[in-house]
Amino acid sequence: MKLSKNTFDHLKHFSTINPNFLFRKGAEQSTIAGSRGRVVATTLDTSFPLNFPIRDLGIFLKAVSSLNDPDIEFSKSKLTLKGKDGKIYFKKSDPKNLVLPSKKIAFPETDIEFDIGRDQFSTLINSLKKHHFYDVIFKGDGKAIVIKTNGSHREDYVFEQNIGKTDKKFSFRFVVSNLICPIDDYKVSISRKGIARFQSKSSDYISYIAVEKPKPQ
């Protein structure tokens, strides 16, 4: 079997969340952040033949890129990349030593729901990454939904973005690293039980993100 570009790109994104990875039998794949503050799931256009845990997905993807048009073969004990110019083997890792998602997320009742467009999300992610913000607040004041934060915990350095209207009042804090998703249109659902869901409008990609506790005033 071969990896499509779409599958390769999704796996590359997964590798930035957690190097540990379990190729699950079938096309539905997921990963969890090492902090366990985020779970990402999607359905790929590549279907895998069996469950196979691997310690470092990033190294695997570099190996795929290093070979000339490699085929991928799975067995119970190893994964083999066969290129026209060589082979690379990966031994099966013990899942007990890896950080892996244990089950599908059962999302609780939604309290707040809104859309964020591709251009808005692109501006948000690029600004947060460029200025090295640590956390961000999604806030509703009964009229507008505003994303606001400060940089390096400095109150004099503020990023603010209006993304829509709301008749509700709320304030939810997120760690920026958990928000890094592919640029897309998203439906955002937030539960006051401490979890948010960013669901792509163009694919099966879903990111479940922990809502952080408010900072002490």
Rank of each mutant, 00 (worst) to 15 (best):
H13A: 13
F14K: 08
F14H: 03
F21P: 00
L22Q: 03
K25T: 09
A27F: 06
A27S: 15
E28N: 14
T31F: 01
A33M: 01
G34A: 12
S35T: 13
R38C: 09
V39A: 10
V40W: 02
T42F: 13
T42R: 10
L44K: 06
F48Q: 00
F48T: 05
F48Y: 04
L50G: 09
L50M: 15
F52E: 03
I54E: 05
I54Q: 00
R55W: 06
D56L: 04
D56C: 07
F60V: 09
L61P: 01
A63L: 10
A63I: 11
A63V: 10
N68M: 14
D69W: 06
P70G: 06
D71F: 07
I72C: 04
S75F: 07
L81T: 03
L81K: 03
K82V: 12
G83W: 04
G86Y: 05
I88A: 10
I88R: 11
I88F: 09
Y89I: 09
S93A: 12
D94H: 06
D94Q: 10
K96N: 14
N97H: 12
S102R: 11
K103F: 09
I105R: 08
A106S: 14
A106M: 11
F107N: 12
T110V: 15
D111T: 02
R118V: 02
R118G: 04
D119S: 07
D119H: 05
Q120F: 03
F121C: 01
T123V: 13
I125C: 02
N126V: 00
Y134G: 15
V136H: 01
